[in-house]
């Protein structure tokens, strides 16, 4: 449930972004997420959801507006330094290093931690994701789809980020695995990590989210508590595609 009294974890103000300057895909988004919230970003295909979070992560050029982490403006912080500010991003595809081992994937992320904390953090993550601890020397490319997603999430958590952004973590996974991934995300959120989740899988996402925002054609058109939105037929019809909702879980 929304917790408006908590401090702001991540916000954007009038954010305009896109690969080409004359063709912005995100066209002025004001967005706020408070500490400890889990917010899902919904919207039809091509609405700019993915571009929106990539712009925050520094992977898509921001043309105007700002993105802030707490009080700090991170709009122009280079992508590789955002993690040091406490912002972790898990891309939709190719989100692990397939040629590195599981352990090396985690070590890579741990590199920005002080030396004495690296082993402890990695050990803690093996505790959280026991599947990964079975054979840490396994090449990540040999993992299954679900395990890859778990590794990507684990790697993002190595540095104990304050905000975790995930771009469609359910893409390409079977419903059973999606349920597993989402319950893991919920558990992570309950440890205090703020989560922004971009999803096509509306039903499953709304089930774990506190709040949802809906992007349409690069603009934030609607927002509200997840529970209310899930039952809102007008929203479903207008922005999610009514026929889309029941099918979505089987994506």
């Amino acid at each position: 449930m929304s917790v408006p009294e908590r401090p702001i974890a991540l916000s954007t103000h009038a954010l305009v972004a896109g690969y080409e300057r004359d063709l912005p895909i995100v066209r002025g988004v004001d967005f706020v997420i408070r500490r400890g919230e889990l917010v899902v970003v919904l919207g039809p295909n091509g609405a700019g959801k993915s571009t929106f979070v990539k712009a925050i992560a520094g992977l898509v050029p921001v043309h105007s507006g700002t993105a802030s982490l707490g009080a700090a403006d991170i709009t122009s912080v280079p992508a590789h330094e955002k993690i040091q500010h406490g912002l972790a991003f898990v891309p939709q595809t190719e989100n692990i290093f397939a040629t590195l081992s599981i352990h090396e994937n985690l070590l890579l992320a741990a590199n920005i931690l002080p030396k004495d904390r690296r082993q402890d953090r990695i050990a803690a993550l093996y505790g959280m994701f026991p599947d990964l601890a079975v054979r840490p020397s396994l090449r990540a490319g040999q993992l299954s789809g679900g395990q890859r997603q778990m590794l990507a999430v684990a790697r993002a958590l190595v540095v104990e980020p304050s905000v975790l952004i995930l771009d469609e973590p359910s893409a390409g996974l079977s419903p059973k695995i999606v349920a597993e991934v989402f319950s893991t995300l919920k558990a992570i959120n309950e440890t205090g990590v703020t989560i922004v989740l971009v999803e096509q899988n509306v039903k499953a996402a709304l089930a774990i989210a506190d709040r949802a925002v809906i992007l349409v054609e690069g603009l934030l058109r609607h927002e509200g508590p997840a529970a209310t939105l899930a039952d809102d037929p007008i929203v479903a019809e207008l922005y999610l595609g009514a026929r889309h909702v029941p099918k979505a879980a089987g994506r």
Partner: peptide
């Protein structure tokens, strides 16, 4: 090795 496999992801993970 990370940059060689996926430069963008390496940036996301914090590699300079």
């Amino acid at each position: 090795r990370a940059v060689s496999e996926n430069r963008q992801l390496a940036g996301v993970v914090g590699v300079d």
